[in-house]
């Protein structure tokens, strides 16, 4: 007799072997697999753990009225320069905090620190993206104030960060005119996951072969982005429109207007 279920061994049944061992007699035809093997059906999302932590971050941000933005781009598109200019213009009238993600060094955090805004640097080491757990830990260090704008500058990479929700309110993709205008088609996953697109280094447009309309057309094919803002972190062109968008996000999160 099977000591798990008490059956006589002549019927068909299926059960697991949790926490017990037993010998099957020769006439015992269970559907137990060889050597106690059994199949566990999980149907578990591989990114489930990241998703849970991201939602936990999101809940914390909501409760504190924090507008969290995930800034993604290729290396060298000007994420840090846009942030420096933004903080110089908005902070401290608008409370802000920054989480900087890079593989190595604290160069970016040092640049942000000079603006006076609280910043914490995450070095991902060999990692190519930030994940919700890293942000969870970084938030404890940077302690963003109530009702603040939290900028999370992801690792410069248009592939890997696309899959990892950090708990942000919106995802901002930055492309610069010194890159190819076909980037949205080449890196569709990242564009697909973004809410707004900044087109940076717009002051260099006369000198480069970049077609803004073409780029926006490609981005519309692969994403639901409905807002494209042309900016220059160097000259300040278009930055007011970006700040107006930031203000809209802050108002939405805080339930104003």
């Amino acid at each position: 007799m099977c000591i798990t279920c008490g059956c006589s061994g002549d019927g068909h049944h299926l059960h697991g072997h949790e926490g017990h061992d037993h010998d099957h007699s020769a006439d015992h035809h269970h559907e137990h697999h060889d050597q106690d093997s059994r199949v566990i059906t999980l149907e578990q999302d591989i990114l489930h753990k990241n998703q849970l932590l991201a939602e936990r971050n999101r809940g914390f941000f909501e409760a504190r009225g924090i507008t969290a933005l995930n800034l993604v781009s290729s290396p060298g598109s000007g994420k840090t320069s846009i942030l420096e200019r933004t903080l110089t213009d908005l902070y401290p009238a608008q409370p802000c905090a920054v989480i900087e993600g890079d593989q190595q060094t604290s160069c970016d955090a040092d640049r942000i620190k000079a603006t006076g805004a609280p910043v914490v640097q995450i070095n991902t080491g060999k990692g190519c993206h930030l994940d919700a757990e890293m942000v969870h830990a970084a938030v404890k260090h940077v302690k963003p104030a109530q009702d603040s704008l939290l900028f999370i500058e992801n690792v410069g990479n248009l592939v890997c960060p696309a899959m990892f929700d950090l708990g942000e309110s919106a995802r901002v993709i930055i492309i610069s005119v010194t890159e190819g205008d076909d980037k949205p088609l080449k890196y569709p996953d990242m564009f697909h996951s973004a809410n707004i697109c900044l087109i940076n280094k717009i002051d260099l447009l006369p000198y480069v072969n970049f077609n803004v309309d073409k780029m926006i057309g490609y981005a519309r094919q692969v994403s639901h982005i409905d807002r494209f803002i042309q900016v220059s972190a160097t000259t300040g062109q278009g930055m007011e429109e970006w700040y107006a968008w930031l203000k809209e996000q802050v108002n939405v999160v805080q339930g104003v207007g």
């Binding site: 059994r38 199949v39 999980l42 591989i46």
Partner: peptide, 8 residues
Amino acid sequence: RVHALTVH
């Protein structure tokens, strides 16, 4: 997704 595992 992880659909299923066979364990022993």
